[in-house]
Design a protein around this nucleic acid. Structure first.
Lengths: 338, 338
DNA sequence: CTGTTAGCGCATTCAG
DNA sequence: CTGAATGCGCTAACAG
């Protein structure tokens, strides 16, 4: 089944049929109707590979993320999918598992025209962005979300990381904490650095000195993370509050507290970044900061389509900053920066 | 940049280069090395669309799921991705949002050769499978997982739904419950029916009569689900235990209990299907049944590749049944059917 | 072991 | 408004 057979059945030329199918203005309405009817009857579908080969565009975008079993990223995908469906685009998923080598491999692969554009959040290990620069230079637009790459000149969607880091720390202070731990990712990630800077700013505002013994940086190894947290929580100068700036560390902290029989919140106040919608529901003693993940996905996809539709040229770029919400343990929702 | 330019640079014919790139046995090692070196130097990549057009295969599979912001499905995708990466395949994601019309639209679309095979879980609304039968007949193999379609003759990966439904209900009985509610999906879904049958069998074993007033079927509307659960939990003959056979209903039950100030587990014992790894961690009063989602994804993908690699013909099919785990509120893990 | 040739199915010039 | 002809980039007979 191909366009040739369809054209023969209709006693029309291939080109006429092709134009009719793409609803070209050059074709009369009756002809279009005939073509559509016959196409339907014969169950004809345009071959996407032939079409893409000819048109040099794939109607496909790639989504590159560090992990998928994470409510934040799956909500983002949901948002992306909403826009992609609207635009009749297809979504290819690539998961790096926080492995730079995989990220590089995917980036290199995508030079081949398989996708028209890329939406991504960089892996925690990544600190050299050559592979992404090359991809951009080869004409594939990239839009970053959340874990962005500041040295690459392109659009990105982020949340108010500094402000929410500040708000989280301030919240702990207002709950009476004076020794506040920070559990986060490596500082070369922009989100980590900014949340950390917010944390530092809040400490400063309330006249608390930073104590490096209360800082834990997450690696990929969960056991190692838990060991590092355990060390902090069992030290002589242990914290009375902690800010887990990524969900992975929140879960690790929770595990450690359980093992050490430390009660949250009476012995340790914990506040964490989390998009696990039901976490506060299941355990109201957790205070969380939630990012508008679905909206982030939508905005990122919309921005990418601006590039694809040439409404925005690749040498122009925009940073879009969305607001996170702080959900205190009373479960009353409020936007911290509203 | 294309294979022609590459061939010219090498003073070789296009076909020799093409063969060298695919590591054909017909090409000498030195030539292959030269080709690879030049390809690397010139940053050449095979155009996947030209290749797919010519070879009539896309090296791409589609994953069709009802929702993605759900730990079960995202873990499944993780498993699928693991196998796909091993096989150098690409993954297109389609989310039906439990909408049959979207499912039909996707299925029709995929007749066009965009993918070599499909992995899917049917939407809750689906009760006519023509669109899937047509897709199979057009030569695209489908492997179902979890929400399978029993009337289509193809392979599928499921869990021991009857047994886990039985175990869940028995667990409630052993905890002292005598009026046990069942909160599930529509019965036309095989997983729902089997879990329900397990529930009924357990009631029978312990001489408890089924009470239709304790049965709630979930729709897509969360508010309506919560209203139905509220009605049951506030009736004169309210249950002392409940089995939520899908996570959505577990969350709804939890919400309702909170609103009604019903304590779990002292006033209502709740057991639920859930792949939210940290749910028992966050709230040890929940007993959960966890499906091996990652393994389901891997098995499903492996089975699909058996079709794609012609190790299994499409008229042959296998049902693979994996075991779920019952995690009681003590958090001691055990496989209920081990 | 390598080259020549003929399409895969479609979109788009260009010519009417 | 429609048709003929060309080629997107690659693979696979077939031929040597």
């Amino acid at each position: 089944m191909n366009i040739k057979i369809l054209a023969e059945q209709l006693n029309l030329s291939i080109s006429t049929v092709s134009r009719a199918l793409r609803d070209s203005y050059e074709i009369s309405e009756p002809t279009k109707a005939r073509v559509r009817a016959m196409a339907k009857q014969l169950n004809y579908r345009i071959n996407p590979y032939a079409s893409s080969l000819r048109r040099h565009r794939s109607k496909t975008i790639a989504v590159l993320i560090p992990e998928i079993t994470n409510n934040f990223f799956s909500q983002v995908i949901n948002g992306i999918e909403y826009i992609a469906q609207e635009k009749n685009y297809h979504i290819l998923i690539y998961i790096t598992h926080e492995d730079v080598r995989k990220e590089i491999e995917f980036a290199h692969h995508l030079h081949n025209g398989r996708v028209d554009g890329v939406l991504m959040s960089v892996s925690a290990e990544t600190n050299n962005y050559d592979h992404l620069n090359e991809l951009m230079e080869s004409g594939v637009p990239i839009v970053f979300f959340d874990r962005i790459c500041e040295s690459i000149e392109t659009s990105s969607i982020i949340t108010d990381d500094f402000e929410s880091g500040f708000a989280a720390t301030e919240h702990l202070f207002q709950c009476g904490c004076r020794r506040i731990g920070f559990f986060g990712l490596f500082e070369h990630l922009s989100i980590s650095r900014k949340r950390y800077e917010g944390y530092l700013a809040a400490l400063k505002k309330y006249g608390i000195n930073k104590d490096d013994d209360l800082i834990v940086r997450s690696g990929n190894d969960i056991a190692a993370n838990e060991a590092a947290i355990t060390k902090v929580l069992t030290s002589a100068n242990k914290p009375d509050g902690a800010f887990a700036s990524i969900e992975k560390m929140a879960i690790a902290s929770y595990n450690v507290c359980k093992r050490l029989d430390i009660d949250i919140p009476s012995q340790l106040k914990l506040i964490s970044f989390s998009n696990l919608e039901i976490s506060t529901l299941l355990n109201p003693s957790l205070t969380t900061i939630t990012q508008p993940a679905y909206e982030i996905g939508k905005q990122a996809a919309m921005q990418l389509f601006r590039y694809l539709e040439k409404k925005l040229y690749m040498n122009r770029h925009e940073k879009i900053v969305l607001k996170s919400s702080l959900i205190p343990r009373q479960s009353t929702k409020k936007t911290h920066s509203a």
